[in-house]
Structure formats: structure tokens, C-alpha cells
């Protein structure tokens, strides 16, 4: 009985403490932005996270406040997007956005689509690359010929069904007019699996293959963007090789919840632009292997909308599309 009495007393004490605490914390004003820490939600690990952390640092420098990258992984980005939607649209919660805003919606993981976010600025694009083991296929044409002659025999490594590398592979091999088998495997194993000959081709990010390509163990056949990428300028594009339909890139940029005040978006946009043009970001792009592609809020919005259409159709064709409950 004694214990119960004590607990009641404690509850009373808590109520008093709250009364004291709450009067204090309403005192802050919102005239200057940022007046407190900005949380930047990062949705994935790997390169996405590394670049996100860099951008957070860059924003911090150009914005004059604290920007903390916080990872909220899971569900192909859905967990992080949902978190942003649960927060007030104050500009203090931003997200390191990517194509996953479209893929997670069309896979039925989020009930809202890209329109629920206000674009701030696009920062970079990453371009997938098609690679094979050296000595197996020398060009995309050889690969296409083989795949057409042996439908379903060519094993193409992807990161997982519905992953961006899967969508890219689907576009590539559709354009080539070949039927292939997709092998989903865990993170980052593409080079090893290719070297061992367990898969015949793989679509991944160039950073994973570069060292092997230079050593002559693997061969990067083509990149999927419209223009060659700066970090691996010797690799032709699919467009150059005559497959004009192939144009896939993964964009990354900043976004906030819809309804965030214009002034906040402007401030963030300005800081992002300054960082995108800095020497530091350029150096990082070379080392990590992404392409800087700054777009302002308006242009970025257009790009997202255009991409969303493409992804929607693609996912429908692949039978991956689903409606959110």
C-alpha cells in the first residue's frame, strides 16, 4: 500500500514540474531562420548517406545554423518520408530526397506522393553503369546478341526487386530487346559475384566497379545517362551506342513538407546553391563518384514530376505497382 501512495505523490510532483517547464519553452521566437537545429532525414545508408552528410555540413556552413543528418532507414524510404509528414512544416525538418519518393509511393508503401513535399534544390545525380567480367563480353552489342539468342539465360545482378538498379536494368534490357533473369542479392556484392562468374552482368554504381575496371578484371560497358559522367569519362553512354531510349539517372536533392513557409525554402535553397558551387563539393563528387547537378526549387519540381511519370509506367509494366491502403 505504501508504494501506491508514493506513486500518487510522485505523479503530483511530475505535474508541478511540467507546469514549470512548459512556461519556459514557449518563450523562443521564430523571427530568424534558423533559430534552432535543423534535422535532415537521411533515408538510406551507403553513398546516399555519405553525400547526405556532406550536404548537411555544407548547408550548416552557408546557413549559419546547425544541420544534423539523422538516418531514418527502412521500407525503401517510406519510414523517413512518413516521419517528415508527421512533423510540422516549419523548415526545421528536411529530407535528403531521391527517386525513392516515387518508387515508395507506387509500390504502395506511402499513401502520399511527391506532391506532399516542397522541393528545395536538386544537388546531384548518380548514374548506374552496366558491367561485365573482362573477357566475356566486349560491348553492349555482344551482350545483346547473346541475350537475344539465349532468352532468359543471361543472369543480371540487381540489388533487389523494385530497387533502382532493377528498374534501370529493366529499361536497359527492354531497349536491347532481350529477356534475362534477374538475380537479387545483398549489398555491394556485385564485383565479387561478377568476378566469380556467378552472374553475367550487373547494374550498379560506378564507384563499386571503378577499381576493378582499371585493373582489367571487370569491364564497365555503358552508363545510362544522356551525357558521359565526369568521374569515368571513358565509359560511353547507351545513347552513344545507339540505344537512345535509355535515360536513367538517380537524382538526389533536398525537400521539405508541403506548406513550409516560402522564406524558409528560399533560405535553404540559397545555402544549397552556395554549397553546390563550392570547390569542396566538387572535390567530393570526384572522389565518391557522383555528378553535381544543381537545380533550383522550380526546376527541381519539374524534374521530379517528369521522373514520377516514368517510374509509374515502368513499375506498372514490371508488375510492381501497388496501391497504398
Amino acid at each position: 500500500m505504501k508504494l501506491t501512495k508514493k506513486i500518487v505523490g510522485a505523479l503530483a510532483a511530475i505535474t508541478l514540474l511540467f507546469a514549470g517547464a512548459s512556461t519556459n519553452s514557449f518563450a523562443g521566437s521564430h523571427s530568424k531562420f534558423p533559430s534552432k537545429t535543423i534535422e535532415m532525414t537521411v533515408l538510406f545508408g551507403g553513398t546516399a548517406k555519405s553525400v547526405g552528410q556532406l550536404v548537411a555540413k555544407g548547408l550548416e556552413k552557408n546557413l549559419g545554423g546547425t544541420v544534423v543528418p539523422v538516418s531514418r532507414p527502412g521500407g525503401g524510404g517510406a519510414v523517413g518520408y512518413k516521419y517528415i509528414q508527421s512533423r510540422p512544416a516549419s523548415g526545421y525538418d528536411i529530407v535528403w530526397n531521391s527517386n525513392s519518393v516515387s518508387t515508395s509511393h507506387h509500390r504502395g508503401r506511402t499513401s502520399f506522393n511527391y506532391k506532399a513535399f516542397t522541393p528545395i534544390a536538386a544537388m546531384s545525380i548518380e548514374v548506374p553503369v552496366l558491367a561485365v567480367k573482362s573477357g566475356t563480353f566486349n560491348s553492349v552489342k555482344e551482350l545483346a546478341d547473346y541475350a537475344k539468342k539465349n532468352p532468359g539465360k543471361l543472369k543480371v545482378g540487381i540489388s533487389g526487386k523494385g530497387a533502382f538498379t532493377h528498374l534501370t536494368s529493366a529499361i536497359i534490357f527492354d531497349t536491347l530487346g532481350a529477356k534475362v533473369t534477374y538475380i537479387p542479392y545483398g549489398k555491394g556484392k556485385a564485383p565479387a559475384e561478377l568476378l566469380a562468374g556467378r552472374i553475367d552482368a550487373a547494374v550498379q554504381w560506378p564507384g563499386q566497379f571503378r577499381s576493378f575496371h582499371k585493373a582489367g578484371q571487370l569491364k564497365m560497358l555503358a552508363v545510362t545517362s544522356q551525357e558521359r559522367i565526369a568521374s569515368d569519362s571513358s565509359i560511353p553512354t547507351m545513347k552513344e551506342l545507339g540505344y537512345k531510349k535509355v535515360d536513367v539517372t538517380m537524382w538526389r536533392g533536398l525537400a521539405a513538407k508541403k506548406g513550409t513557409p516560402k522564406a524558409q525554402i528560399k533560405a535553404l535553397e540559397k545555402a544549397a546553391e552556395a554549397y553546390a558551387n563550392s570547390a569542396e563539393f566538387k572535390a567530393a563528387s570526384k572522389k565518391i563518384g557522383f555528378t553535381i547537378n544543381y537545380l533550383n526549387s522550380k526546376q527541381f519540381g519539374k524534374q521530379i514530376a517528369k521522373d514520377d511519370k516514368k517510374i509509374k509506367k515502368l513499375m506498372k509494366d514490371l508488375g510492381l505497382a501497388k496501391k497504398a491502403k
Partner: peptide, 11 residues
């Protein structure tokens, strides 16, 4: 602080 206080003092 509230929870820690509550635990050490009362619980």
C-alpha cells in the same frame, strides 16, 4: 530528469 527522479526517489 523527471523519470530518473521519479525512479530513484519514489520507485
Amino acid at each position: 530528469p523527471i523519470v530518473v527522479f521519479f525512479i530513484t526517489r519514489f520507485l
